[in-house]
């Protein structure tokens, strides 16, 4: 049985606990064991990352070292976290001076980064560790006639050389999973564009405009829902639909990937936190479960 230490990041446990719960429920069903990382810290994405590169390396480096202590590779379910951890791993693997500097800070905790640990994003677990065949075999209640748009997220798929998850210009993992679960994956303009989340800090209205660009393109393809694999993307694509310009009836439900897969695998909605989704996905799930 494959084991990973789960790094949730700052945001998922507080703002999107349903995602965390759904990940645990689905991975448990598919035979992946997850250990919660205790005593973690923020990975430093975006903010410390911009202000001091070495501090950023120390923060993500500590998480890498912690996972070495646990003796397992890391599963990061947030796109920003997975991007940060992979990036810092790359830097620490290449730059010995930086690695020594970070390890010096970790020394009195008895932690050390030696390079052993690998970082994976949730999509890699589905694609590489579980495999499409196993998922297909485990589907008990397939969807039918549901059109879904996959949103991968920038930090999940880029820069390809470091994250190595999927084709950065034409990613397909989520689309394949949608298909395996019986849904119809829908291609749309600007599939690889950013959701706008990172702009919220500096210019909220601009961030909303960028997010709505994506929503508009998805609506043009008449998708019934959006499937995401990053905490920020999910929150952003949901939140922008509560502003001006989107009527209540027009809102497109946003589901995290495990929340989408779960019902098809026979997992109950309660375990997946479906009721926590701000835009109700009841229409999507109507065919596969009693909501």
């Amino acid at each position: 049985m494959k084991e990973f230490v789960l790094y949730t990041g700052c945001t998922a446990p507080v703002r999107l606990p349903a995602y965390e719960a759904a990940v645990k429920a689905v991975l448990d069903k598919m035979g992946i064991k997850l250990i919660d990382m205790k005593g973690a810290n923020c990975c430093g994405a975006q903010y410390v990352e911009s202000v001091n590169r070495h501090a950023f390396a120390a923060m993500s480096g500590r998480i890498l070292a912690l996972s070495e202590k646990y003796g397992h590779d890391i599963l990061a379910i947030c796109g920003a976290c997975s991007g940060s951890l992979k990036w810092v791993k790359h830097e620490l693997d290449e730059d010995w001076k930086l690695r020594d500097e970070v390890n010096a800070l970790l020394a009195d905790e008895g932690l050390e980064y030696t390079g052993k640990t690998q970082v994976k994003h949730l999509l890699q677990i589905f694609h590489e560790d579980i495999g499409y065949d196993a998922i297909k075999a485990a589907i008990v209640k397939p969807y039918s006639g549901i059109r879904l748009a996959a949103h991968y997220g920038c930090h999940v798929t880029r820069p390809y050389d470091i994250v190595r998850v999927d084709d950065p210009e034409n990613p397909t993992i989520i689309d394949r999973l949608i298909e395996i679960a019986g849904g119809t994956p829908v291609d749309y303009t600007g599939k690889t564009r950013c959701c706008g989340g990172p702009m919220l800090a500096m210019d909220q209205s601009l961030a909303v405009k960028i997010g709505l660009d994506k929503i508009r393109n998805i609506r043009n393809e008449k998708a019934d829902g959006i499937v995401t694999a990053c905490v920020f993307c999910d929150i952003q694509l949901t939140q922008v639909q509560f502003g001006e310009g989107v009527g209540e009836k027009e809102r497109i439900p946003v589901l995290t990937l495990p929340q989408f897969l779960g019902p098809a695998l026979g997992i109950s909605p309660a375990k997946l936190g479906i009721s926590f989704n701000k835009i109700s996905p009841s229409k999507i799930l109507a065919g596969v479960m009693e909501v």
């Binding site: 920038c154 880029r158 820069p159 390809y160 950065p168 564009r193 950013c194 706008g196 990172p198 960028i210």
Partner: peptide, 9 residues
């Protein structure tokens, strides 16, 4: 910059 890296790609 949102560090979406589409430019880099």
């Amino acid at each position: 910059c949102m560090t979406c890296r589409l430019c880099e790609e």
